[in-house]
């Protein structure tokens, strides 16, 4: 600050800011207090939060009764694997858009290609009809839908230039989950019901509901647009000249990526991972809808306290503290780098 501020004004600001800061933080503080009280004291907390004794018993009970560590394990598996999987997709994609951009737009599909798509879809319909004893069922309609809507839309996306490609990727993050919930729920849930009259699709007993096989890819897809986008902005800050220097120095593409680009982008990759970590750790919509036991993460674990039996506030508080503490600390450390990811770069 170049301007001089009187100490009186500074004192006033300090008081106001601290009061507001403490007020906003208060619910978290209050939960922390309740976590260390006995169950009966927790219910009279407003009257006697200082006078009642402190205890650690809640943490033990939470673990004992609802197997807290199992949920931590589940959350960690989902968060870590989906972050890694996301990086596997996102690093090459972000490299491509930052350093080998395609100003004219991607591959346009030729008329021959379109002919192939139409003939291919007809052929698949034909096969489907054959296996269904020539009855025109929803299977045929499903396939036609795929080829009338999904394939052209995907090709449209693929033909974007780099700028529009990024915007398209971001826009996929804006799609409301309610629009995808039904098919995802059905695909995850029970084979027979989704495809109940899609005669050809009797794939046996597959069921990825409430499993890591479903949750990890789903979480990856949910955050992939933001991960790609954030990595892209970090890669963009690396001068192309340095990569060119590596090329002149005889580095292969692999060496260029592994010895020059990745080490230089490491801080950016780290903060991308952190944002991904926070987002998927706190994700609730899909977790509540698609898990209930085996792959249930912490947000599901907490939701189980919404209607338990008996006294539960102290245990709820203890469980809550255990669920939020890691991410709160990570959030504190990375808040400054998160802004760019949280606004899609629209604010600098």
């Amino acid at each position: 600050m170049a301007r001089k501020i009187s100490n009186r004004r500074k004192l006033l600001t300090t008081i106001i800011a601290w009061v507001i800061g403490l007020l906003l933080f208060f619910p978290i503080f209050w939960t922390a207090v309740a976590a260390f009280k006995t169950e009966s004291d927790a219910y009279t907390l407003p009257q006697n939060w200082l006078s009642t004794p402190w205890t650690l018993e809640n943490f033990g009970i939470v673990q004992e009764r609802s197997n807290y560590f199992r949920y931590v394990f589940n959350t960690s598996v989902i968060v870590i694997l989906s972050t890694l999987l996301g990086l596997v997709f996102a690093i090459p994609a972000a490299w491509s858009m930052a350093f080998a951009p395609n100003p004219e737009g991607g591959s346009k599909i030729s008329s021959l290609g379109w002919l192939g798509i139409v003939l291919g879809s007809l052929a698949i319909c034909f096969v489907a009809l054959y296996f269904n004893n020539w009855k025109p069922t929803n299977a045929v309609i499903g396939i036609l839908l795929l080829f009338i809507f999904v394939v052209p839309a995907s090709l449209w996306a693929w033909s974007r230039n780099t700028h529009n490609m990024l915007l398209w990727m971001l826009s996929t993050k804006m799609m409301p989950p309610a629009g995808a919930l039904i098919p995802i729920y059905l695909i995850f849930n029970r084979n027979g019901l989704v495809f109940r009259d899609w005669g050809w699709a009797n794939w046996g007993d597959y069921n990825i509901m409430d499993s890591f096989w479903g949750m990890v890819p789903l979480m990856t897809l949910l955050n992939l647009p933001i991960v790609i986008w954030m990595l892209f902005t970090y890669f963009k800050e690396i001068p192309v000249g340095i990569l060119e220097a590596a090329r002149m120095d005889g580095a292969s593409l692999w060496n260029e990526l592994s010895r020059v680009l990745t080490p230089m982008a490491l801080p950016g990759i780290a903060s991308t991972c952190l944002l991904n970590l926070i987002l998927s750790w706190n994700e609730a919509f899909w977790s509540l809808n698609l898990t209930n036991k085996y792959a249930a993460p912490l947000s599901f674990f907490i939701s189980e306290y919404s209607s338990p039996e008996g006294q539960f506030w102290a245990k709820l508080s203890a469980a809550s503290m255990m669920a939020i503490a890691p991410i709160l600390i990570i959030g504190w450390f990375s808040q400054k780098q998160l802004v760019r990811g949280l606004t899609f770069g629209a604010v600098k």
Binding site: L22, F25, P27, N282, A284, F300
Partner: peptide, 16 residues
Amino acid sequence: LMISPFFIMPTVSSLV
């Protein structure tokens, strides 16, 4: 202190 609520899991803040 002020930024903290943003990092709290929605299920936690609801129940608390």
